[in-house]
Write a protein that binds this DNA or RNA. Structure first.
Lengths: 409, 409
DNA sequence: TCCATTATCCTCGTGCCACGAGGATAAAAG
DNA sequence: CTTTTATCCTCGTGGCACGAGGATAATGGA
């Protein structure tokens, strides 16, 4: 994934002076409306420093302040919030039947979430529809729009779609989405980004090492360490579904054999039931879950086999990576719920013995189907709030292209 | 692994002022004897800043300078090197038949490497022997010794050995190694730390995401991202050998089933040959490799099966993590060399199709059997050169416990 | 031998950022 | 109306790094 990193930038002296500013702006992400005193406490600033920094950030159109509702005695204070003319990240998600986009402010909130239904026109049409949306939002928000961050239900490499079982796409270049806008485009896998959202503000919040597993068509997700997804050299990491945990004789559309992918989704249920491969594996899985719940023992047995494969693989990944906690997204939660004992037996049985006294909790995802979009927003905001990006924004917002100095008036 | 992180510290204002100092001291690690001008160029400092910083670091007994051999015209310069009374990290490695320790200076060099043979006395005796060595080095180096960093051929959790097939140990607490010294003790898995050494200065140097696989008894290693090992919540990550890539019916001593561990080492070769499980799996593997090389077709076939399992698992991990490069340590290199075509076929066959046009190179480890010790030193030096640790050292070296200010005289 | 060239280092004035003490401000409580 | 509480602002101080200009010490050639 060409997702921007989470670092402050650290590139030279011009951006070094933004270090505290970066800390303050990012603090806003997970502390939505702090008072100035809160800020000083949490970031170990003196009140004088807080005054100076917030003043600068207000002039740079990054923050604004609103009077706080009075609570007890003491001098009334103000709450810090994103500036009404502050910078924005556009988060986009491409999924099977529809795409979504939303605009995110520096406090991490999503605004103006909208959905674009796909009309079976293939990747070109989806891309064209989204490009039009990007152009329109660009016109509306002008220079406030700084970054476009895209989550896509596909294997992603160097900002391109390589292949997608969920979408039925082959290679697709996504650069046209932002053509002509000069906006940086970040592209990531949807399951991986949903994992980022879970690790930062969802089920695994607080976990320094979190594992997310999202079952849809196949299984994706991956590790999130200190809020950053572990996505490898070209961004194609997080493809845990293509570890060979399954039957080595079975061929995967990805080109390899024995992929875990083939054991844990609707396709696997169909195979166990002797059905033909379903065209919509997710929908099929939901139907079979319903059947199993209503007493169809054949469906229940097929589901249990899939749940066992899920639990066993989860345990293997816990052995290999030792996360603080695991989150289950997409179908994984309903699957486990359909056969919790089978999951637990396979999970515990697959763990190395020393993990069994306090195994990492396996939690249902908290963000539902907004996870990928939220994760894309988080990653886009990370990029938007590097020292370098803030310095650039300061130039845009104040009309001081040289960024030679903070303006003091 | 309770390995110190690679960050500058970032904890409060008292250590913030050490930021540039941290950069300079760490620069020394991979640029052994820079001139002051080199330093200024590489770290984008002005010559004035370089003067000030090197002066401070000299007074803090972190650096010293020696005249550089003249090369062409121009004012002669000096080379920066570790201060002769500067801080030290003690790197220790516990392996099957012996332990080793060495003292590392801030430039990353190992000094005074010594070996302690084990006399079958079990963990207590090994621990006691090493504790004596620590005490002796502590006496010799006094306050210069800052950190003890230990690599051990075992599964490690929260600084304790959980279990080790290679050593034949059960749970062992390693804290007694530094008892009474008040020295911080970092403990990591040997294969993981060898991976750190490879990723920083070895075969995969330059790779931002590197995968190391070390076959000894079982297989260990793991991911190294930006020089930091991905070791999870309690430090037990990197146990890639306990992913269930093998025969689900086979029980692993770890408590799980189907572990990859059981398919890629001497035990696996013995199984394929119908031999009893070897007591020394590594030695047995070497003997079988020799036999296969000398024309024993049965041994050769067994080796080929193991090599195929290694290649297939490697491919799966590449699918899952998308590293820039892979390094092979321990027996993995000789195994591949014994059946390179089988390895290549299994590796390429196990990759997702899109990886096949330019798959990550699989390289033999460069550090040989010094990898773990070097990795332990690297990680110990990371800890020793955080902002907080340098500030503390400054107090020790200058007798200014308040560390209220840099001394200017 | 002397001087130009080259490379490096040092000095000093300046700017920026954050600190911290003390005072100012604005509400509630008495 | 005064006290208490909580917050904010002002201003002097200090540390660190920058950057221009000068100083220094070698080589190489006249």
């Amino acid at each position: 994934m060409s997702t921007g990193n989470f670092d402050a930038g650290g590139g030279g002296a011009r951006t070094a002076r933004w270090r505290t500013a970066v800390d303050v702006v990012r603090h806003l992400r997970h502390h939505p409306r702090p008072t100035r005193a809160d800020l000083a406490r949490d970031l170990a600033l003196t009140s004088g420093s807080a005054t100076e920094i917030t003043g600068r950030l207000r002039r740079a159109k990054l923050l604004s302040e609103e009077p706080a509702p009075v609570a007890g005695r003491g001098r009334p204070t103000t709450l810090l919030r994103p500036h009404p003319e502050g910078p924005l990240t556009l988060a986009v998600e491409i999924r099977h039947e529809e795409s979504r986009c939303a605009v995110a402010t520096v406090d991490g909130r999503l605004h103006d979430v909208r959905t674009l239904r796909h009309d079976d026109g293939g990747p070109e049409q989806v891309r064209a529809g989204l490009a039009a949306a990007v152009r329109e939002l660009r016109r509306r928000h002008r220079a406030r729009l700084r970054v476009v961050s895209l989550a896509v239900a596909a294997t992603v490499r160097d900002g391109r779609v390589v292949q997608s079982a969920a979408l039925g796409w082959g290679p697709v270049d996504l650069a046209p989405l932002t053509a002509g806008t000069h906006l940086p485009l970040l592209v990531g896998n949807d399951a991986t980004l949903a994992g980022v959202a879970e690790a930062r503000t969802g089920a695994t919040a607080g976990a320094r090492t979190a594992l997310h597993l999202l079952v849809d068509v196949g299984v994706g997700g991956g590790l999130v360490v200190d809020g950053r997804p572990v996505v490898g050299a070209t961004g194609a990491g997080g493809e845990v579904g293509h570890l060979p945990l399954g039957d080595p004789g079975r061929h995967c559309p990805c080109g390899a054999t024995g992929c875990w992918d083939l054991e844990v989704d609707g396709r696997a249920i169909a195979r166990h039931l002797g059905d033909a491969p379903p065209t919509d594996a997710r929908d099929y899985a939901h139907r079979m879950l319903a059947r199993a719940a209503s007493g169809d023992t054949g469906a229940a047995l097929a589901v249990r086999r899939v749940v066992a494969a899920l639990g066993r693989g989860t345990a293997g990944l816990v052995n290999a990576h030792d996360p603080d906690a695991v989150s289950l997204g997409g179908l994984a939660g309903p699957l486990r719920a359909a056969a919790p004992d089978d999951f637990q037996a396979a999970y515990a049985g697959g763990l190395m013995a020393f993990h069994r006294d306090r195994p990492p909790p396996v939690l249902d995802a908290a963000h539902g189907d907004l996870g990928a979009l939220r994760g894309a927003a988080e990653v886009g905001l990370d990029r938007m709030t590097t020292g370098a990006a803030l310095a650039e924004w300061h130039g845009v917002a104040t009309g001081d292209p040289a960024q030679s100095t903070w303006d003091r008036n």
